[in-house]
C-alpha cells in the first residue's frame, strides 16, 4: 500500500500541506514543483493528478505560439488538467540542413517569457548547447534535455546548474535502467528535480517501439515519469531527409501509458500539422487534443482508484 507522508509544497503564494508518498518498497517518491514567480504552480509525481506538457514542437512565430497557448490552455482549463507550455527555440536535431532550425535563443526565450506572463502558465524548452542552459533556465520553469543528448555530461551539468526541474528524455538508444546513470550525474551536479520521459526506443532502423515496462523501471529511481506520445510514433528519418510518423497510434499508446502508470503526458500539438515547421508528420492536430486528454485523465484517475482499492502492485521477483 502507498504510505502517506506529510510534505510541504509551495502552491501559489501559500504554503500548502500535500501528501508525499513512499511506494511499497519504502522508496520515497519525489514530487517535482514546476513554476516560479507569477505562474500557476504545477506539481508532478506520486499519486497527484496527471499533468500535461504540450505545445508546438517549435516556436514558429510569436503569434502562433500565443494562439497555441491560448487554445491548449482553454482545453486544459475545461478538463481541469494542470499543464506546462512546451515549445523550442532551436531544433538542433533536424535531419536536413534545409529544415526550419528555429527562431533562435533570444527571440524564442522572449516569446516564452511573454507566454508565461500572458497566460500564467509554466513553460519548458529544451536546449542543445550547454552554453544555452543559463539563459534557458532563467526564463523557463523547467528545462528539457533532448533525447539524443541524454547521456552527455556537459548538457546534464548545464541542466542541473539551472536549478530548475529537468525533463530528461530517455534516448531512443538507451535502456530504461541505464537512465539511472544520467539521473546520478544530475544529482552529482546538485539537482534532484528530474522527470524521466520515454519517447520510444529504436527498433532496428527508422522505427521506434514503446516498451511499457520502461515507466516502472525508470520509476525505480524515485522520480516521476512521463510519456511522450507524439515522438513515440515518429519513424526517425524514414522519409529520406525528414522523419515520418504514424500518428494514428497516438490515442491507443496514450491509453496504454496512462494505465501503466505515468505522472505526466507530453504531446506536441499544432493547429495545422501538414504546414507545421517542425515535426509535421508527428505533431497532433489540436482538434484531437481534448478527446485524448480526457481519456488519459480518466484512465489515470481510474488507475489511482484501483490502487487505492486493491493495493499497490505486489507481484515481485521471488526473494
Amino acid at each position: 500500500m502507498l504510505q502517506l507522508v506529510a510534505l510541504q509544497l509551495n502552491v501559489g503564494n501559500k504554503k500548502q500541506l500535500l501528501l508525499g508518498e513512499k511506494n511499497g518498497g519504502g522508496m520515497e517518491l519525489k514530487i517535482l514543483n514546476v513554476g516560479y514567480g507569477e505562474v500557476g504552480k504545477v506539481s508532478i509525481g506520486g499519486s497527484l493528478p496527471l499533468v500535461f506538457i504540450g505545445g508546438p514542437c517549435a516556436i514558429e512565430s510569436r503569434d502562433h505560439a500565443f494562439m497555441m497557448a491560448e487554445r491548449i490552455g482553454e482545453i486544459c482549463q475545461r478538463l481541469n488538467i494542470s499543464w506546462i507550455f512546451k515549445a523550442c527555440y532551436d531544433k538542433d536535431c533536424r535531419s536536413s540542413p534545409d529544415s526550419f532550425h528555429g527562431v533562435g535563443i533570444d527571440s524564442g526565450l522572449n516569446v516564452l517569457a511573454e507566454i508565461r506572463k500572458a497566460f500564467g502558465v509554466p513553460v519548458v524548452s529544451d536546449f542543445s548547447d550547454p552554453a544555452w542552459g543559463g539563459a534557458t533556465g532563467e526564463v523557463c520553469d523547467m528545462v528539457q534535455v533532448p533525447a539524443y543528448l541524454c547521456r552527455q555530461t556537459s548538457i546534464l551539468r548545464a541542466a542541473a546548474a539551472t536549478n530548475r526541474p529537468i525533463n530528461l528524455k530517455k534516448g531512443q538508444f538507451m535502456s530504461p535502467w541505464n537512465m539511472k546513470n544520467s539521473v546520478r550525474k544530475i544529482e552529482a551536479f546538485g539537482n534532484s528535480q528530474v522527470l524521466l520521459t520515454d519517447r520510444g526506443t529504436f527498433f532496428g532502423y527508422n522505427m521506434l517501439i514503446n516498451d511499457f515496462r520502461n515507466f516502472s523501471i525508470m520509476s525505480e529511481t524515485g522520480y516521476p515519469v512521463c510519456f511522450d506520445a507524439t515522438h513515440s510514433i515518429q519513424m526517425p528519418t524514414s522519409m529520406g531527409n525528414i522523419s515520418g510518423g504514424q500518428r494514428e497510434y497516438i490515442p491507443c499508446l496514450v491509453r496504454a501509458a496512462a494505465a501503466c502508470g505515468i505522472n505526466a503526458l507530453f504531446m506536441e500539438v499544432h493547429n495545422d500539422p501538414p504546414n507545421a515547421l517542425s515535426d509535421a508528420n508527428t505533431v497532433l492536430d489540436i482538434r484531437y487534443l481534448e478527446q485524448i486528454l480526457v481519456q488519459a485523465k480518466a484512465i489515470h484517475d481510474m488507475k489511482r482508484e484501483l490502487i487505492e482499492k486493491y493495493g499497490e502492485d505486489n507481484v515481485h521477483v521471488e526473494k
Binding site: 535502456s175 535502467w177 541505464n178 546513470n181 521477483v317
Partner: peptide, 10 residues
C-alpha cells in the same frame, strides 16, 4: 533475477 545482465549490473 530474470532481468538482463545490463539491468542487473546497474
Amino acid at each position: 533475477v530474470q532481468k538482463p545482465f545490463s539491468a542487473f549490473f546497474v
